[in-house]
Amino acid sequence: MTDGPSASMRGLARRLLAVEAASESAAGSHVHEGVRVCEKLKISVARFAGSDSFASLLRRALALARTENATLQTVKVKADGSLNGCEALAVDGPEGAIALIAHLLGLLETFVGEPSTRRLVRQAWPDASLDS
């Protein structure tokens, strides 16, 4: 399916970024919230599907997100599924990070369905209130 992520997955992406932005200011972290969302999703997805699977999905999500946000051109996915060149995520506001996370969630939704995608998200943020 080549359609973009659903509105519900875009909403979830925004919510996850907001949750991480709030915790960033509380903890004084300097890592971009988009990177931290990816890292948390990586743990959850890799546990059940393996880190290779997560890295593949993230690469595909990045390719899709680049078509709607050119600032992501310098972002790369490393072999272990972590992001490189994340400074670009901070350029031009949060739209680049939203696009990347939304496409990642959208891919998961495409492959395993919304209930399973939300389950993986809940495993990564067990204490967060993620209802839109």
Binding site: A46, R47, F48, A49, G50, S53, L57, L108, F111, V112, G113, P115, S116, R119
Partner: peptide, 28 residues
């Protein structure tokens, strides 16, 4: 691959989504 397995297995009628909330856990 676990993602594909989850994708295909949920097509069967015995697949109960609610059981994935703790009753069935997949580990790679």
């Amino acid at each position: 691959p676990a993602i594909k397995m989850l994708r295909y297995q949920q097509q069967f009628t015995f697949f109960d989504q609610s059981k994935l909330d703790g009753a069935i856990r997949s580990i790679n």
